[in-house]
């Protein structure tokens, strides 16, 4: 199972800098990052090459972090690519809680990372639609 790290962060100067500092120190490479900003606080989602190492480093630094199960799928980099995935999940009544995409140069393709509640069902639905899911090793090795 692939993991991303969700980190609770106060919305004030220097916080993000401390977080990236801790990851740099641990030698962790960040693949993708999103920030969900709320009033006064935010949740940073990090896709990294070594989630466990990153998680430990952040805990060590006093951050409240959570290892979140996610599904990373290869998205056809053309019109309708995202739609295929959404349709596959929707057919099974699976709600996407959060998602973000990014392009991977080496693979010349795009990846979509999705957070859903029912992970096994979601994986099943995606596979059935002929969409490839990256294993965690593949994901971290990017």
């Amino acid at each position: 199972m692939a993991h991303q790290i969700n980190v609770f962060l106060e919305n004030r100067p220097g916080r993000l800098e401390r977080l990236t500092g801790a990851l740099t120190q641990a030698g962790v490479n960040i693949r993708a990052i999103t920030i969900a900003d709320q009033e006064g606080f935010g949740v940073i989602k990090l896709l990294v090459d070594a989630p466990d190492k990153a998680f430990d480093a952040l805990k060590e630094e006093g951050f409240t972090a959570y290892l979140k199960d996610v599904i990373a799928v290869i998205m056809n980099d053309r019109p309708g690519g995202l739609h295929e995935i959404c349709r596959a999940l929707d057919r099974e009544g699976i709600n996407i809680e959060d998602a973000y995409g990014f392009v991977v140069q080496e693979l010349k393709t795009a990846l979509l990372v999705v957070e859903v509640e029912k992970i096994p069902e979601a994986e099943e639905a995606i596979r059935r639609a002929g969409i490839r899911i990256l294993s965690d090793e593949e994901l971290y090795r990017l």
Binding site: N6, F8, T64, K68
Partner: peptide
Amino acid sequence: TGEIWHGDVREL
């Protein structure tokens, strides 16, 4: 703290 949070924004 980690004990009261399970990674979700809406949860917060």
